[in-house]
Amino acid sequence: MTSTALSASPFNRVLFILYGVSALAGMAVGLYNPIIAVMMKAAGYSDTAIGGASSLFFLCVILTAPLAGFLTQRISMRLALACGLVLAGTASCLFAYAQTGAEWFGYRGLLGAGIGLYLIGGQSAVNTFANDRNRTIVGGLHALCFGIGMGVGPILGTALYEVTAALAMFVCAGILFVGAPVVLIGLPVEVASKPRALRLAQIKRISLALHAVFAYGVAEAILMSLFPVFMLDRGYSMTTMSIAFSAFVVGGIISTVPLTKWADKAGQERVLAFCACVGVLGSLAMTLSTHPYIAMAASAVTGACLGPVFALALALLGRRLPKEDLAGGSAVFTAFFSLGSMVAPWLAALIMAQLGSLHIFTLSTLLFATLLVRLVVARPAVQQASGA
């Protein structure tokens, strides 16, 4: 471990590189997601096919997780990061020439595999080059940079798409390719360790982190896919829907740094319980509100509490596992997030079809409510495990 990694400051050369590459990756993800959907729609594919391609992306992230964990642990985090960026960039280039259904789905899967490698390598790097004094704030800044990139990506992508769709995908590829040499040159060389699978005892130690990130994946996927439609169905205008949606995103961006900084002092479990509690109440308010201003305010509060959950869960995982298990833990962590993102739109839509549109957040609310119960009821055990 380098002295850089042991610094209590969340700002040093290595961490700045991770933040910068995270922003590049977020920009690329924010760029290609809407552009690919528009390209497929223009090519005549149904909404079902477009949704299936999106689910395939997360499925390939899950399928790549064991390989990414092995590569990160056995060879190098730098290599996993760089390979993921290059693979995703290559898929972006290929999208510019996609014509058949097999090509659309194949390149989407390749993109998912590349992003899976990047995510797992990046999460392992964050926990490796952080420490218990700054672990949560480092994860929060890493997630914040990714989120800012995702916010810039659609704006850039829309401007480029108006010129030509191929240009948008080539620029996306260029953004990803830039990150590869930065990672290979800028990150320190780690000593490879013998790969080992997580034992059941280790899985139990990080079960709270896995629960939290699965719930986060579910909530984010429902918000992205179903919340705009829900708002419009309730009679809200397009402007109100856009503001409420933006309020959720902005709330998460604003709260990430202060809440993760608080978690480094008060403990990830305590802040996670606070976020779960307010997130549940905020989700209920978003669903039941009949006034647009209440819906906007509830959206902002909910986003502020749920936005930092990913970073809190990742930091909790990093604190609960020894260094040699971080790669395997990050692979499982990413798989749980991707699984939640993949199944949420289908399950939430099924619940809404059976119980009504007011139950849009019922699935995510139940997941966060049970997480809160686990954190409160098992608090002595959690504190004992933290000190183990």
Rank of each mutant, 00 (worst) to 15 (best):
I360P: 07
L284N: 04
V257G: 05
N134L: 08
L350D: 12
G279S: 10
G51I: 11
L371A: 06
C275L: 11
F177R: 05
G282Q: 13
N12H: 09
F129N: 09
C145Q: 10
A143F: 03
M342T: 01
R78S: 02
G329I: 02
F70N: 08
T100I: 03
M1S: 14
A353F: 10
L79P: 07
A385I: 04
A327F: 07
A349C: 07
G106W: 10
G179I: 10
T128V: 07
A28Y: 03
E220I: 04
G235F: 07
E162T: 11
S7Y: 05
P181V: 14
G235I: 04
F129S: 10
A25F: 09
S255F: 12
A285I: 12
G114D: 06
L111M: 12
A273N: 12
S242Y: 00
W346K: 13
T72Q: 05
S338N: 12
L63T: 02
Y107M: 08
L24F: 06
L284E: 09
E324Y: 13
A349L: 03
Q202W: 06
V250Y: 01
E162V: 08
A130E: 02
L371H: 04
L210T: 06
A5C: 12
A221F: 05
A298E: 03
Q123D: 03
K194E: 14
F11T: 10
S255Y: 05
F214H: 06
G251N: 08
M169T: 09
S7C: 07
I351M: 10
I35H: 03
S193V: 10
Q383V: 08
V249D: 00
P195T: 13
P66S: 14
A165D: 10
S237K: 05
I203F: 12
L176V: 01
A5G: 11
L375A: 15
F129H: 15
G109W: 01
R379E: 13
M150V: 09
F129C: 10
A91N: 06
F11E: 04
S22A: 15
Q268C: 12
V218F: 00
A173G: 01
A166N: 14
W262F: 15
A209P: 00
G217F: 01
A25M: 15
T4K: 11
A23C: 14
D264K: 02
M296F: 04
T2I: 05
V14N: 13
G217D: 02
W104P: 08
I222F: 02
A285P: 07
